[in-house]
Simulated assay, not measured.
Amino acid sequence: MGKKICLLEDDQGIKEIIELILTEEQYEVYGFSNVKEFMAFDGKASQDLYLLDVKLPDGNGIEVCDMLKNSDATKDIPVMMMSAHAALSEMKKQCGAEDFIAKPFDIFDLLKRVDAFVGPSN
Rank of each mutant, 00 (worst) to 15 (best):
M1N: 15
G2C: 03
G2E: 06
K3L: 05
K4G: 14
I5E: 03
I5S: 08
I5V: 09
L8K: 01
E9G: 01
D10L: 00
D10K: 01
D11N: 08
D11R: 01
D11A: 05
Q12C: 14
G13C: 11
I14V: 06
E16R: 09
E19G: 07
I21T: 06
I21F: 09
L22H: 07
L22Y: 06
E24R: 12
E24N: 13
E24A: 12
E25P: 11
E25C: 08
E25R: 08
Q26H: 14
Y27Q: 00
E28H: 08
E28S: 10
V29L: 05
V29R: 08
F32N: 02
S33H: 03
N34V: 10
E37Q: 12
F38R: 11
F38D: 09
A40D: 13
D42N: 14
G43A: 11
G43F: 04
A45L: 12
Q47S: 13
D48A: 00
L49P: 05
Y50W: 02
D53N: 03
V54T: 10
V54F: 03
P57H: 07
D58K: 09
N60P: 06
G61N: 03
I62S: 09
I62C: 07
I62G: 11
E63L: 08
E63I: 10
V64K: 02
V64G: 01
D66V: 14
D66W: 15
D66R: 15
M67T: 15
K69E: 06
K69F: 09
S71N: 13
D72H: 15
D72I: 15
A73P: 09
A73Y: 13
T74Y: 05
D76W: 12
I77F: 08
P78C: 00
V79H: 03
M80D: 05
M81H: 03
M81D: 01
M81E: 00
M82D: 01
M82F: 02
S83Y: 04
A84S: 04
H85M: 10
H85V: 08
A86R: 13
L88P: 08
S89R: 15
S89D: 14
E90H: 14
E90L: 13
M91K: 07
K93P: 10
K93G: 15
Q94Y: 08
Q94V: 01
C95P: 03
G96T: 05
G96F: 00
A97V: 00
E98F: 02
D99C: 11
F100P: 04
A102V: 10
A102Y: 01
A102H: 06
K103D: 02
K103T: 04
P104S: 03
P104G: 02
F105W: 00
D106K: 09
D106T: 10
I107D: 09
F108T: 14
L111T: 10
L111E: 05
L111F: 07
R113L: 08
D115I: 13
A116Q: 09
V118I: 07
P120F: 06
P120S: 13
P120T: 15
S121E: 02
N122L: 15
N122M: 14
